[in-house]
């Protein structure tokens, strides 16, 4: 376990859309140990859902691969890494622009990263075309009174 972590969990599952709900529910259940506020819980579950959906829709577009989630609770909040070994992102900066989407015909809004950035304190994206992408989300949590 990471030295700064109070608790840590790792999860891996195939990139099936049925698992979007499972992934955010699992992170939400893990996070609930820290008695987060309802809005904090909703923010994290939404951000996780966006990142996992990106893995399913983009990283493993024509295949099924593994998605790995590592989550750590620290004294300040929560750290979540969502990792895939899919196609990677050629231009991360462009992919993070609001409303940018490569799939307008499938009614993708292009807001995934914007939502993550809006709801979390930090969003970091590391990607290598052909190798995969890691999205790291952090959010400070205020203990419920």
């Amino acid at each position: 376990m990471n030295k700064k972590a109070l608790n840590e969990m790792k999860l891996s599952f195939p990139s099936l859309s049925e698992n979007e709900r499972f992934a955010r529910a699992a992170v939400g259940a893990f996070m609930s140990q820290k008695n987060p506020r309802v809005d904090e819980l909703n923010d994290v579950k939404t951000a996780v859902s966006e990142a996992v959906t990106n893995c399913i829709v983009h990283a493993y577009r024509d295949s099924v691969g593994l998605i790995e989630i590592t989550a750590r609770l620290t004294s300040e909040g929560i750290y979540i890494k969502i990792r895939d070994r899919g196609c990677g992102i050629e231009d991360v900066k462009r992919a993070m622009e609001p409303l940018f989407t490569t799939l307008p015909d499938e009614e993708r809004s292009g807001l995934g990263f914007s939502v993550m950035e809006s709801l979390c304190d930090s969003v970091s994206v590391k990607s290598l075309p052909g190798s995969g992408t890691a999205v790291i989300l952090t959010k400070r949590l205020r203990t419920k009174l």
Binding site: T46, L111, V115
Partner: peptide, 13 residues
């Protein structure tokens, strides 16, 4: 009870 940006795509469509 929950919605991510897929709901935005649903409304836009």
């Amino acid at each position: 009870s929950f919605m991510d940006s897929s709901g935005v795509g649903l409304v836009m469509g």
